[in-house]
Amino acid sequence: MGETERGVPARPATADREIVIPRVIDAPRELVFEAFTEVRHLSRWWGPEGFTTTTRAFEFRVGGEWSFVMRGPDGTDYQEWITWTEIVPPERIAMLHGEYRDDPNAFESILTFEPDGQATRIEMLTVFPTAELRDEAIEKHGAIEGGRQTLGNLAAYVAEIVRNVRTGAEG
């Protein structure tokens, strides 16, 4: 990010279309990254509280796709589709996320994983095609709280793996 003439950091051109959700997770970066790369992990934690995820297809590689259904606590099914656009283990994952392939309202998410001592600082940056779509995601779909809950579910899931490794239990 550059600076303006007065030395104030410049706002990115996409600021009015972004949601940024940070979280520190008490687990090593490699494990947190792995939780995003294998469907056996994703199906256990992906989504806000009360949601379940059923995968139809999954291929974790640039250009690969993840097709899945999220079922809400009220029984509503949400068709979801992701294609991976960048993968830099264990630092960064970028993806395009919509309801289906070529969805004109699909949004980009960039996940960064930074070591923070024995923990991992994860940041989920989501950029929507328009400010209106971002606002609708926040107001109608609770995108900020849903993102926080999703990262909370991830934190709980990897904490369970770490506990099981420490105690020798299977996870």
Results as ranks from 00 to 15, higher is better:
E38I: 01
A94W: 02
G63P: 13
K140G: 07
E49D: 13
V8Y: 12
E34C: 01
T120F: 05
E30D: 15
T150A: 13
E91Q: 12
K140C: 02
T76F: 05
A159P: 07
G146Q: 14
Y157S: 05
W66Y: 14
P89Y: 02
T55Y: 10
G98I: 11
T14W: 03
N105F: 15
N153K: 15
G152S: 10
V8K: 13
V165F: 00
I138E: 13
D16I: 04
Y78G: 01
R121Y: 09
R101G: 05
E136P: 01
T130V: 07
G142I: 05
V62S: 15
P73F: 06
F128K: 06
I110L: 14
N105W: 09
D16A: 15
M95R: 00
G98M: 06
P9F: 03
I21W: 08
W66A: 12
V88M: 08
E132P: 00
G147N: 13
R11E: 14
F68Q: 04
R61D: 03
D103S: 08
E49P: 01
D103I: 03
S109A: 15
V88P: 01
P129Y: 03
W81G: 09
D16Q: 14
A119P: 08
F60R: 04
D16R: 13
V127Q: 06
E38Q: 03
R44M: 11
T37V: 03
R17I: 02
G171P: 07
R44A: 14
E65M: 09
T53K: 10
M95Q: 03
A57F: 03
G147D: 13
T14G: 07
G98K: 10
G63D: 05
V162K: 14
A106P: 07
E139M: 12
L133Q: 08
R166E: 05
A156M: 07
G98T: 08
G171T: 06
G117S: 10
M70G: 07
V88E: 10
V39A: 06
A94C: 10
T4S: 10
V158Q: 09
R71L: 06
T112K: 10
A159C: 12
I144P: 12
E3D: 11
Q118K: 09
V39K: 03
T150G: 11
W45L: 04
V88F: 01
Q149T: 12
V69E: 14
G171Q: 08
I110P: 00
D135H: 06
E108N: 13
P115C: 05
K140I: 00
A159K: 15
P89T: 02
E30G: 02
E80Y: 00
Y157E: 00
L151P: 12
Q149K: 04
T54S: 08
F68W: 11
E18T: 06
N164F: 02
R40T: 04
L96V: 05
I144E: 14
E139C: 06
P104A: 11
R17W: 01
R56T: 01
V162P: 10
